[in-house]
Design a protein around this nucleic acid. Structure first.
Lengths: 190, 190
DNA sequence: GTCTATAGTGCGATAGAC
DNA sequence: GTCTATCGCACTATAGAC
């Protein structure tokens, strides 16, 4: 019998989401979350560098998935092809069953400016990492940054649609449509 | 003779930038900044809702300038024409003389993750406001959001170039080039 | 202007796993 | 013995309430 249960971070995250959803983010202290899983505030901060992080940890695989799509693309792929490849791969993580969880989490974030700020920061980090991958493949500036930011923007818009009321399409399908819309809008008629 | 000096916010902002630049953001307390201009910590927080805000207040005219460009565009302008108009107008605020100040301010931000987070948040607010303006002009979704985010991205990339070492072009000229690059990249050859 | 709650840090002590 | 997760306590700064 272990002295400490495994998966402490996961349990803290689950408890945090639950408490944030029912009592509000600001009304929930770090000590409340820790207490809910039988730990102390100090331990909470060992697992998460700050209180917001408890809602944003575990996104590493999202980044990895975007990067995997880029790695798998053919050598002669244009920047926008790499964006498409990254989106195909990155959006595949969001299975239909995940929608209720994503909706709940987003509703918490949408009600708090500090959390929105952190969310933007994370999306920005995603774009930066994609940009690095593109530059590593030889995409020059400013194309690499433009492409990376476009991928992040398309993902964000698609995600918002995906968790929208009554939406049933897959995130991947939505992202394809949004990307097509971007191509049409920027490319124009000519 | 006034009871207190006018331009308190401005003096606090100037003192803050100076202290952040020389001592670091985290090493500078709100009380330090207030003390530097003969005020108390409490007064600092009456002028700025939080410590980071002291570096980001005063960007309202940037937003207004972007919106003015959109308002002035012809009725039949396409979304990307509106992006171009917004950028022309918004970038015009950054006169050459402002470069040293912008460089110093950015160097402070670049050295602190919390400030980068706030910066992203502000850029995000800019994109959201542009998006509102586009929707008000009848641009549908997701084109409005895509265009607004593109404007914000182009501005960000152009700004980074503008404060780069040895750069002499105007921000407006750089933004034009970056926007052209975006058009070329997304539009592709066809 | 004062008072207070909370976020977040630093450090030493403890106690199981190995 | 080492390693690591936890606790407990003291502490500062932010930020908001009064």
């Amino acid at each position: 019998m272990a002295r400490w249960e495994p998966g402490t971070s996961e349990r803290l995250r689950a408890a945090a989401l639950e408490l944030f959803a029912s009592n509000g983010y600001e009304q929930t202290t770090a000590a409340d979350i820790a207490g809910a899983v039988g730990l102390t505030e100090r331990t909470f901060f060992r697992h998460f560098s700050d209180k917001r992080e408890v809602l944003f940890n575990g996104q590493e695989q999202l980044i990895e998935s975007f990067l995997a799509g880029i790695s798998a693309a053919p050598d002669d792929a244009a920047p926008m092809d790499l964006v498409a490849a990254a989106l195909e791969s990155g959006t595949a993580l969001f299975a239909h069953e995940r929608r209720p969880f994503s909706r709940l989490r987003q509703s918490v974030i949408d009600r708090n400016p500090a959390l929105q700020e952190r969310e933007r920061h994370k999306m920005s980090g995603l774009a930066a990492t994609i940009g690095d991958a593109l530059r590593a493949r030889g995409v020059p500036e400013p194309a690499a940054t433009l492409a990376a930011e476009s991928a992040s923007t398309v993902f964000g818009i698609a995600f918002t649609q995906w968790i929208g009321d009554g939406e049933t399409r897959s995130l991947t399908d939505i992202a394809r449509d949004v990307l097509a819309e971007l191509r049409g809008m920027v490319g124009g008629r000519g």
